[in-house]
Simulated assay, not measured.
Amino acid sequence: MRTIKQQHRAVSAPIADLITYRALPTQSVEHLDPFLFLNHHGPQHYSPNNRGLPFGPHPHRGFETVTFILAGDIMHQDTGGHESIIEAGGIQWMTAGSGLIHAEVSSPAFKRTGGDLEILQLWVNLPAKDKLTAPRYIGLQEPEIPTVTLDEGRAQIHAVSGEWGGTKGAVQPLADIQLATINLQAGGKLDLIIPADHTIFFYTIRGKLRVNGQETEALRLTEFNYDGDDLHLEAHTDAVVLLGHAKPFEEPIVAYGPFVMNTQEEIQQAYREYQAGKFGTWKS
């Protein structure tokens, strides 16, 4: 059974009137290679005639954003020509690659009627060889994400990428990144085998559970050592977990604002090319 190195509490980092907890990076953990960043927005309730999400047009290069919509919705637009409205239970997988501009806001319907909102956005690094790959975007609604049901229905794995229990995830990414959300009913148990040389990304979204003998709860990021391949979960209450794993890239990481590259010169080049309009032209 793999041992736990440390648990990290997500820190409050509100963005305008949007409740936000940042689980990665914090003062206690910089990154978990190749997982770079996680913001947990909400949960909160929006009244009718609200302004919605505040993420207007902004650029990215050199990594991927994976967005999990737990409640509410998100409207995506980018300079690659992609547009979508993804509702609760769905995901967005955007490969920024060589660079694009995108916006993530609430749909006109959500801003008009309001409702509950809870969204997670995870940044996943790209290996050096793929940093300048062509951008792409995948938006999937809940029915398009395969579900693996275990423990007589008390455990459900929503297979976003990679392979889980012999079921291929909805997305097959450039790098071998395995991602899933896991729903556990109180008393539910789940055993998984994850290669010992993989980084595990384990974030508890809701509830209380025990993982490999240690208690954890909502807004906790659990960091593991690289010393075993067994993962055992047991829920004390109904719980939701974001679980990922991947072999570390073990490459230099230089991040500045919306760009993640391998050298400072590559960051400067990204800014020059963005300012020169090479990320596309935003159409409002």
Rank of each mutant, 00 (worst) to 15 (best):
R272H: 08
N212I: 01
S161M: 11
D78S: 11
A218Q: 13
V241E: 07
A170N: 05
Q27H: 12
Y271C: 11
G165C: 08
L221F: 15
D176A: 15
P57F: 01
L18Q: 12
Q44M: 15
A96E: 07
H58G: 12
I69F: 07
M94I: 02
E266F: 05
R136A: 12
M1H: 06
T147F: 00
D238M: 02
T149H: 00
Y274T: 12
L132A: 00
T113E: 15
I253E: 06
L132D: 13
L24R: 07
T67E: 05
H76M: 11
R22S: 06
Q6G: 00
V260C: 07
D197S: 11
R136H: 12
I4E: 04
L140T: 07
K168I: 06
A170M: 07
A276G: 15
G97P: 01
L132R: 01
I85L: 11
F37S: 06
R61M: 09
D17H: 03
N262W: 00
A23L: 05
Q156E: 14
G165F: 08
I194D: 11
I69M: 09
L184R: 03
L209H: 02
Q269C: 08
D130L: 15
V241K: 00
P108F: 03
F259T: 04
D130C: 13
K5E: 14
I200Y: 02
P143T: 10
H45V: 14
L190V: 01
V124H: 00
A16P: 02
K208P: 00
T65M: 03
V160E: 01
P248F: 01
M75N: 09
Y274M: 15
V241A: 04
Q185V: 08
F224T: 08
L24H: 10
H245S: 14
T20E: 06
